[in-house]
Amino acid sequence: MHPHPGRRAVFAALPLITLPARAQDAFPSRPITIINAYAAGGQTDIAARLTADRLATAIGQRVMVENRVGGATSIASTAVMQARPDGYTLLAGTSSLAINPTLQPRLTPRNPQAELAPVGMVYRGAFVLHIYPGLPARTLPEFIAYAKAHPGALNYGGVVGTVVHLAMEMLCQRAGIEMTAVPNRGGAEGLLDLQAGRIHCNFQSPVEALASLHEGRTRALAMSSRQRLANLPDVPTVAETLPGFEAVLWMALFAPIGTPEPVISTVAGALNSVTESRDYQARMAQIGLTAESGGPSDVRTRLAADTANWGRVITEAGIRTD
């Protein structure tokens, strides 16, 4: 049987009906995950979770922290680099992003400035340079003079490749002194070594060092930040003796490359409202950190400057991790 001769003409005459496209959900329409490279319970993890809680209120969605520890922070970074660029997976990136390209160039990201999209600053953390009280020095200039008079006789502690380790190497380079690095497993071990005189000096988180300083078991000489700290107002900065010196641990949020600019702007705006709040600033101060505001351009500037600075320090000191 042949089809009705006029059927094709009838179909052709029907108007084309276009169904409306489903409107794209406004961002954010579901929970956001922040990937953190550090173990639960530490200062960095506490800061990440505090930030996530406040960010959730500011952005109107749940914000979770997921710990992916290992690979000198590369496991967490790689997870974010490979995530869908939609703003729902972010990295709590730290100073390691500026250190690893020179210290451990085989790790990913090899070039964080090109492989991650900056979102906004979160905090910075300074360190106090304190010494074994048996040393005669009471100021940084006196300490430098003593070290020059006793080349190679002093040693310091630190986890290899961390900011506290590199800060001490930078101090040696800028001051023209020679000291020996004594690797340890972290702040608590370093503090015990310093109190016992097994090492002579150390850069340490103020929160970790305060009790020891107040008890006179160690002696503070200087802060690694450009400004003095409110809770240690009488301790000068290293920069007051060696102009331009700064060594801080920082955190910033990053997104996968290709994340839409409006999405990044939304997160950056919400994050700034968090870091600028007095309550958040007070809570961060309690754990020894300083809240820092700033958008993508501020993160780029910090990352580029620290990558160049730590690269020079590592290369000049000949530091290796293998």
Rank of each mutant, 00 (worst) to 15 (best):
L171T: 03
N184I: 07
R174E: 15
E178C: 07
A153K: 12
A153I: 06
V164F: 02
R174K: 14
R174S: 13
E178V: 13
G152H: 08
A181N: 13
M168V: 05
L154T: 03
G157I: 06
V160C: 06
Y156L: 01
T180A: 12
N155I: 02
R174I: 12
L166V: 04
M170I: 01
G157P: 07
G158P: 05
P183M: 09
V163S: 11
N184Q: 06
P183F: 10
M170G: 10
R174P: 06
Q173P: 07
V163T: 15
N184S: 14
L166W: 03
I177K: 01
I177W: 00
N155T: 08
V164D: 15
P183R: 11
A181F: 11
V182P: 00
G176W: 03
L154Q: 01
Y156K: 01
G152I: 05
M168N: 13
M179H: 05
A153R: 13
H165K: 07
H165V: 09
Y156E: 01
Q173A: 13
A175I: 06
P183C: 09
V182Q: 15
E169G: 02
M170K: 10
R174T: 14
T180R: 15
Y156S: 10
H165P: 02
V164N: 12
E178S: 13
T162N: 11
A153E: 14
I177N: 01
G152R: 02
R174Q: 15
